[in-house]
Design a protein around this nucleic acid. Structure first.
Lengths: 133, 133
DNA sequence: GCTGGCCTTGACGTCGGCGTCAAGGTCTAC
DNA sequence: GTAGACCTTGACGCCGACGTCAAGGCCAGC
């Protein structure tokens, strides 16, 4: 298939695929007219990349998975290098989540304090409305 | 004080302070020689901004806090617009954390599966080492 | 042959929060 | 007067994952 079809089937753009190629993550044989030609393996490779990106991986971090697939394994995470990336990402996620939860608590605290401060701004001197007057 | 001292006391750079000024978040009166002159209120303002940035706020989101301080309030979050930003940020944090936790679970699952798959790669035909032989 | 849809390479734009460099003015101390 | 430490404006650089535009080649159908 050509680049347009691959892009569509992978749910991305042709620009993206050429970008991956420029990064050495994707390769294509060329038809006689210079058009890129892809097969089903390329589609799986692109889907692997896209899935990892959705997980918050950087492009470079998908490289071990790509190379694992290229080496003939039927899963990108069948190689130790990929598992290392998994573990590293998990650690990053843990610290990231912990940090965000800390911020959330502080933010909740700030909001509660500011809210209560506004609830009693100053001693009000206005006349309370007496119903019936 | 001049920009260098303000930067140092606020724990940032002069470039950053000029950037804030260009964004309309900070203003300075000018000495006769054209140098920017700041006071203690400016320092508090910059610290307010920096604190919010550390919380993951965007610069634009600090604007209500800045304007609140400029309006004479003794806290940047004393105004309703600031509280709105608090609430919006909290909601963003909640969904962000939830998403990351989801990713973490998926990642743990993937890692566990890949690990177990590697633990039993293929039926091993190697001779088990018999101690004593 | 001509229109329209695909493809090619190359290059610049985006976003945010600055870093960094350039070229020059200002002030202080020696 | 001169070195050095501060200040000024302006402009380009950075990061990552692409978007978008330009100028042109290729191919199918009419």
């Amino acid at each position: 298939m050509r680049i347009g079809e691959l892009a569509q089937r992978a749910g991305t753009s042709t620009r993206t695929l050429r970008y991956y190629e420029s990064r050495g993550l994707l390769s294509a044989r060329r038809a006689v007219n210079g058009y890129r030609e892809y097969d089903e393996d390329d589609l799986r490779l692109v889907r692997e990349i896209r899935g990892l990106l959705d997980f918050g991986f950087g492009l470079e971090e998908t490289r071990p998975f790509v190379e694992c697939l290229r080496a003939g394994h039927d899963a990108g995470d069948a190689c130790p290098a990929s598992l290392e990336v998994y573990r590293r990402k998990l650690a990053e996620l843990d610290s990231c989540i912990a940090r965000l939860e800390g911020v959330r608590e502080q933010l909740r605290h700030q909001l509660a304090m500011a809210d209560s401060a506004r609830a009693v701004p100053e001693p009000r001197c206005e006349l309370s409305p007496h119903p019936g007057l």
